[in-house]
Nucleic acid binder design. Sequence first.
RNA 1: GGCCCAUUCGUCUAGACGGCCUAGGACGCCAGGUUUUCAUCCUGGAAAUCGGGGGUUCGAAUCCCCCAUGGGUCACCA
Length: 501
Amino acid sequence: MVRVRFAPSPTGPLHIGGVRTALYNYLFAKKNNGIFILRIEDTDQNRFVAGAEEYILESLEWCGIKFDEGVHVGGKYGPYKQSLRANIYAEYINILIKNDKAYYAFETSEELNDLRKEHESRGETFQYGINNRKKLKNSLTLSSSEVSNLLNSGHPYVIRFKVPENKEIIINDIIRGEIRVKSEIIDDKILFKSDGLPTYHLANIVDDHLMDITHVIRGEEWLPSLPLHVLLYEAFEWEMPEFAHLPLILRPDGNGKLSKRDGDRLGFSVYPITWKDPKSGEIYRGFREDGYYPEAFVNMLALLGWNPGDDKEIMSMHEMIEAFDLKHVHKAGARFDPVKAQWFNHVYLQSRDIKLVAEEFKNELTKHGIDITIEKAEYISEMMRERVNFVKEMVTEAMFFFKAPEELDMKAIKKWGTEKSLEWINDIIEKFKEMTTFESTIIDEVMNKYVKEKELKAGNFYNTIRICLVGTSKGPHLSKIMEYIGREETISRLEMGKRYF
RNA sequence: GGCCCAUUCGUCUAGACGGCCUAGGACGCCAGGUUUUCAUCCUGGAAAUCGGGGGUUCGAAUCCCCCAUGGGUCACCA
């Protein structure tokens, strides 16, 4: 049985890289009829951010990523929050101590900082590990009575992993293949902090083991600590899960990975939903609030570093599950492209149930103080949606349905208007007044007949009229606009437009 | 700086066993067509000598080596 987990720490909002990691875990689990688990890794109480956990839950729910086990849904392997598992880690660290795989160390963080600085000034890098642990203040160098004295006196201590000497660690990553590292370069990492809580490395390995995780799928930033994790599994004599390290998502411009500020700087979201920093009060925009459909967002995100093995790009969650394979995850980092992201939403908007689009459009209009019936909203949505990427864009694009243009586009008038324009406007106003029903198809008949009789160039005539109604030479079929705004308003706008020609 | 990872059109990518690749698709861009306008849509085009240099081979984007570049990571953070 495949069991995978997404294990974020609640230190802030989840950015799209994190969402993608969750998504790939989810797709992999579902593809293999496995279990998907949410575990909260909150062993660092200093970095706790209020609302972050709720944010993660809400974001993933919006994306349609569901968990089988986890903090919010329960399960047999709980608790799923590491701060609630402190006693478990204590138990396992003692096993390591007992088996001489870990040791107590008594340097304070200040002392360590000094050591680092000192080494740095000599152009060296300080490493607490195989090469110098025999020279430092720890249970490897101190006598057992000295150690128990320190421990009993309440002197702060940490527990460090005792990296085995002269070992080459060979790991097989599903995405990257074989990776080799020598144990000499690995630090004796702190496994247990002086506050009595484990660090990520210990908690992560213990939990993955206890929760029967079969595949660890996580970001590439974890690759450097993979050898340590492998060594930990060996120290515990546990069977290892398989590993897959995902490439990073890079910023659209310049260098480096996508970060918090990029979105605001470049004008797009890097977060799935809006996040308000509880401390600073700063607000970071989200894809949801930008108007993206979750289906489009998820589809776009999935293809940022993965492909189904063919040319298919538009895929439902179900189709992605069917096609998902870690072998098709690209190895190199992917540069996020906001323009293509918009295209995905455009495609989803076109195939969406028009009733839903109408409802969304109606809601957007309400925000702008415009209230129309759902039928009218559908009428407009039908002809406007193909011109935009987001429903909210329809509001500005369709404003002429609700308000007469304040001024007319002089460039358009120059291009389409003629010395006869004024005459046409007057003539057509008269024709409109004579009509019994002011309905789109009949309006077309009347106008077409006029154009034929007068032998006009269609473009000049229709755009003269259009500019009066819309303000410029664009928009959906003219008679549809006229029918919507009605005869009175149509004539009024034509009268108003006359002074421009 | 040490260690690790990566490197195909501007961007996302195809490229599982070397020959089907004079490198395919998508976004974007450009042109033409459709449209009474704009957009959509359709058709076409420009766009990667596969980071560079050496090998191996009858043959390499695909295998090997070196170099360069980019990235990640080196916390009592995850």
